[in-house]
Design a protein around this nucleic acid. Structure first.
Lengths: 209, 209
DNA sequence: TGGTACACTTGACCTTGGGTACAGTGACCC
DNA sequence: GGGTCACTGTACCCAAGGTCAAGTGTACCA
């Protein structure tokens, strides 16, 4: 009766993470039970707690993995943009266009932002989780801020502007657009906001007709 | 032993709503137990379920009350702005300034947006809750869109711009800024984003130096 | 004055789900 | 052939959501 699958090293843990990430983005952390995850992955409760000491450890691991993946993804987008042009403003606008295209290409409403999902569950998570989320957003902020500073050096802004707030604005727009998009069930919201942000940037630094 | 307080009509229900709203904004819906609410309000479990058939009914009621309060608050801000000037663009900019001031005056990081808190808990709530949230955001969208259209009639935009996206942008910015603000624990984020949005609006429609 | 509706209380009980504990067990590795 | 890894299986605890039925003081109304 005891059907034992071949030893699967880290695969089971990874499949657990993937199943959990999808379920959490889909319906939220609290609504995702350990039970359904182990059924999906095909292990038992003991197996789950062998990998993660509790539910919080699970979301910590998801966030960590997510952070790395997102970093790579952002790097790729920046690299693609850098291939097209060397001029900082043009490069940033290409990056925004790529970002917009990727968001528009998603089949459904954006599955949602893990950070935001954890943000409204304060007491449910450990400090580590909140620290990871913070680190992630600060990373976006500083990356965009560096770009904007580089742009401002070449193309000084037409009027006095808060570059740090402008860097934050993209982060904020993405998270906010996901909320609006999910709530009103319109997938165009996110790409449209990115496009509008690009307009803003172009209007501040460039000469738009 | 049975200590019976004077009949309190709707007060108990209202106190329950207030306690729940604060707790939910503070730590999330899932982390808020019925137990702690009834202790705070000083009733028993039976009393709770007398007022609300379940936890979902509680958040429905909170959202309903919130929707009304927010509407009044928005109306007041618009009315105050209308007192200062009649010109649509100037009026909207005054409104944004007032909004910014109110957000900056909050003692802490903004307690958070109920809509966003529900958005990432899809399966935990009833359809009614999501419909209420949707209605709320669509209300903001259409209000701001009406303002922007009025502005565009008097001061045509300097370049082709998507006014609906621009209306959404304010909604998106507020929700997104709350997330960023809560996550990185910087209360200035929200007022700064509103200020930046005002810059954007002024830059699109007005003549800024 | 008496009746009825309201706003609860009390307490017993059920279920789900997170979490613990621990003794196995097959596969793989040295 | 011994140890470790990656689990299984079982049994059990606790918190929290939720149900049910019977009771009780208060207020208002006829």
């Amino acid at each position: 009766m005891t059907f034992i699958k071949p030893r699967s090293t880290a695969t089971t843990r990874d499949r657990l993470l993937t199943a959990a990430e999808m379920a959490i983005l889909d319906k939220g952390f609290a609504a995702t039970s350990i039970e359904e995850l182990i059924v999906e992955v095909g292990i038992t409760k003991g197996g789950f707690f062998y990998h993660f000491k509790d539910k919080s450890a699970l979301i910590e691991a998801i966030l960590e993995r997510h952070l790395v993946a997102e970093e790579v993804w952002l790097d790729d987008l920046f690299a693609s943009a850098a291939k097209e042009t060397e001029e900082p403003l043009a490069q940033f606008l290409v990056f925004l266009r790529l970002l917009q295209e990727q968001m528009a290409a998603l089949p459904d409403v954006h599955p949602g932002c893990l950070i935001a999902a954890t943000c409204f569950q304060e007491r449910l998570f450990t400090q580590t989780v909140h620290d990871l989320a913070q680190q992630n957003l600060l990373n976006w902020r500083s990356r965009f801020h560096a770009r904007l500073t580089a742009i401002a050096k070449v193309d000084p802004p037409r009027y006095q502007i808060d570059l740090e707030a402008m860097a934050d604005m993209l982060v904020v727009l993405v998270d906010g657009a996901i909320i609006l998009s999910k709530t009103v069930r319109e997938k165009e919201v996110l790409p449209r906001q990115i496009a509008l942000y690009a307009c803003f940037v172009a209007g501040v630094f460039g000469d738009v007709g």
